[in-house]
């Protein structure tokens, strides 16, 4: 095989795996949108908040240390050496569930029957609030997150692919990050678990009923508010997974919340209401972005990754306004 072709394969593979990372965030959006019709802009910040909490618990930081010191003039920062990673993940999940409950209790309950745009704005407000809260609780410095996932390039794959290249050509093998591979596997497991959950459990069925028709679901005795708490908790769980993955990859810092913006074109490509859509949309965006950067980017001086995904999604929308797998938009007067 010629090096050019192998390069192409490498770009596609890396694009696919980057796409999986986008899908992880997009998944949280879709879950909440399906169940409550809310476009949850705070999903990215939830991932950041989850990652911050996880690191904080793991390393044993005192929450709100900065604020406490400012008010009391004390100098607290750590309460010990931290805790076991699994315990920390478990506790973080608890925090996310608490957050879901609070969001329902304080915000959503009062906004039932408001227009979607108002709910969207409320989630932007929530995003700001969480961003400030996360920084206030755990400090704004960049933190490294290590939950024991392997990182770095795979030498085995590099050696293997080097042999594929035709002899006599200069080819040094493909670079693939092991973390991306584990992210792909985890995303796969996550999607399977989520679809099994929504297909075969009573709660899952209730979730789908609510997604289908709020009023009909209420009339057969499903509590909307409980469902919302559950959905936001699941979205919190997805955010935690995304936060762990992205946090391990690029450090836990503010820019983590910007992955929400990356997930938006994935969403409109796949459709707001489809879980497979989120995955396939993510893959298309990931591959498209990487290919465009490699083959079209040089003509424009590079760095087109920032907007290419949006343009791709936009061009796509012109032909299919509801996205790939979205429900057909029917309008009546």
């Amino acid at each position: 095989m010629s090096p050019d072709f192998l390069n192409f394969v490498e770009i596609v593979l890396n694009g696919l795996m980057a796409g999986v990372m986008y899908s992880l965030v997009a998944l949280g959006f879709v879950l909440i949108f399906k169940a409550s019709g809310i476009f949850n802009f705070a999903q990215g910040v939830m991932a950041l908040f989850a990652a911050l909490t996880l690191v904080g618990l793991q390393t044993g930081q005192v929450p709100f240390a900065h604020l406490i010191n400012a008010i009391l003039g004390s100098n607290v920062h750590h309460w010990g050496d931290g805790m076991n990673t699994f315990l920390a993940i478990f506790l973080t999940m608890g925090v996310m569930i608490l957050l879901a409950w609070l969001v329902e209790k304080i915000v959503l309950k009062h906004l039932v029957n408001q227009e979607p745009i108002i709910l969207f704005m409320a989630t932007i407000g929530l995003a700001y609030f969480l961003e400030g809260l996360g920084d206030l609780m755990w400090g704004a410095d960049i933190k490294t997150l290590d939950v024991g996932l392997p990182v770095g390039g795979s030498f085995w794959w590099e050696d293997l692919t080097r042999e594929w290249a035709a002899t006599g050509t200069e080819y040094y093998g493909m670079y693939i990050d092991v973390l991306d591979v584990s992210a792909t596997l985890i995303a796969l497991v996550l999607v399977i678990v989520l679809s099994l959950f929504s297909q075969y459990t009573a709660t899952g069925r209730a979730l789908r009923a609510v997604a289908d028709d709020h009023q009909a679901a209420m009339s057969v005795g499903i509590s909307l508010r409980t469902i919302w708490v559950i959905v936001w908790s699941i979205a919190g769980f997805v955010a935690l997974v995304a936060g762990i993955m992205w946090g391990t990859k690029s450090g836990v810092q503010f820019s983590l919340s910007l992955i929400a913006l990356k997930a938006l074109p994935v969403l409109i490509l796949g459709g707001f209401t489809s879980i497979p859509g989120a995955i396939i949309g993510g893959l298309i965006i990931g591959v498209g972005e990487k290919l465009a950067e490699a083959y079209i980017g040089p003509f424009f001086g590079g760095a087109i990754e920032n907007w290419f995904a949006y343009m791709l999604a936009l061009a796509f929308l012109l032909f299919r306004p509801q996205g790939l797998f979205g429900e057909k938009i029917i309008e009546r007067i």
Binding site: V107, A122, Y128, E131, L133
Partner: peptide, 21 residues
């Protein structure tokens, strides 16, 4: 100042939610 900035972001976000409600 950084502490004030964090609290400010939080308050702005909280106020937006408050106003919407």
């Amino acid at each position: 100042t950084d502490l004030a900035a964090h609290i400010q972001i939080m308050l702005v976000g909280g106020l937006i939610v408050f106003f919407l409600i």
